[in-house]
Simulated scan of single mutants.
Amino acid sequence: MVHDLSHPVVDGMPTYPGDPPVSTDAVATHATDGYRLARLSCGTHAGTHIDAPAHILPDGRTLDEFDVSAFVRVCRRVDCRDLGPRAAITADRLPDLDALDDAVDCLAVWTGWDTHWGTPAYRDHPHLVPAAAERIADAGLAVALDTAGPDPTPPVDGAPADTASVADASSETTADGDANWPAHRAILGAGEPIVENLRNLGAVGTTFELRALPLRLDGGGSPVRAVGVER
Rank of each mutant, 00 (worst) to 15 (best):
D19P: 04
G60C: 10
V129I: 03
H45S: 13
R93P: 04
C75E: 01
E65S: 15
A142F: 14
V195W: 12
D51E: 14
R93T: 03
L40F: 06
C80W: 03
D138H: 14
G12I: 09
L210A: 14
V22D: 02
G191N: 08
F208R: 00
N197W: 07
A103Y: 02
A226V: 02
A142R: 13
E196I: 12
D79G: 01
N197I: 07
A26V: 00
W110P: 00
G221Q: 05
A52M: 09
S41I: 06
G221W: 01
R123G: 09
P21Y: 01
H116R: 10
T32G: 00
G18S: 08
P160F: 07
P8L: 09
F71M: 12
S222V: 09
T153D: 10
P85G: 02
G220M: 08
P160W: 09
A169E: 11
D162N: 10
R211E: 13
H127K: 02
S69H: 03
D138Y: 01
P126I: 08
P95F: 07
P150G: 05
A179T: 13
S23A: 15
H55P: 03
V229I: 13
L213V: 15
L5R: 01
H45G: 04
L63E: 07
A212T: 04
R39Q: 11
S6N: 03
A28H: 05
A179R: 12
A139L: 10
P160M: 10
G34I: 00
N180L: 06
R77V: 12
Y35H: 06
V2F: 02
D79E: 09
A54W: 11
V166F: 01
F66P: 01
V129F: 00
N180A: 13
P130D: 14
L107K: 00
S170G: 05
I56G: 06
A226L: 08
R36Y: 08
I194C: 10
